[in-house]
Design a protein around this nucleic acid. Structure first.
Length: 116
DNA sequence: CAATTGACGTAGT
DNA sequence: CACTACGCCAATT
């Protein structure tokens, strides 16, 4: 299993109405320093809508540039529809960041994948 | 096998 | 606040 596949698995576990940051995803895959590759993996992903890539933002709460969805606005609107709170054009982390317990839950799930 | 590349992050100016 | 410089690391070439 490549790291990219782990990334996809982790992102799929992000609940509706919440967002995660790249470092979190990287941490779930075993190492915060992989954060850079997380973005790469999502960009490279062409498997359709199975993975909610739009729920992943950078550490400042900003949506990604122009690449995957048709602009930052498109991603932002999608998040808004899911109930994510925004503060300007940034995600309001205090209300919409992945909760700590959910993070742990996903971590446990990813761990089980690692042992396969 | 070495070089290049990023949807990133932090610290410093 | 904005911009820069540098670190980080797997995948691709």
């Amino acid at each position: 299993m490549t790291l990219a596949e782990k990334v996809y698995a982790a992102v799929q576990k992000i609940p509706r109405g919440k967002v995660a940051v790249y470092s979190q995803i990287a941490a779930l895959c075993g190492n915060r320093n992989l954060r850079r590759f997380v973005g790469n993996a999502l960009r490279n992903y062409s498997g359709g809508t199975c993975v909610p890539c739009h729920r992943v933002v950078n550490a400042r709460g900003e949506c990604s540039g122009s690449l995957a969805f048709g602009g930052t606005d498109a991603q932002k609107n999608r998040l808004l529809e899911e109930g994510v709170f925004f503060n300007g054009n940034k995600v309001d982390f205090s209300r919409s960041l992945l909760s700590e317990d959910k993070f742990q839950e996903i971590a446990a799930f990813l761990y089980s994948l690692n042992t396969q």
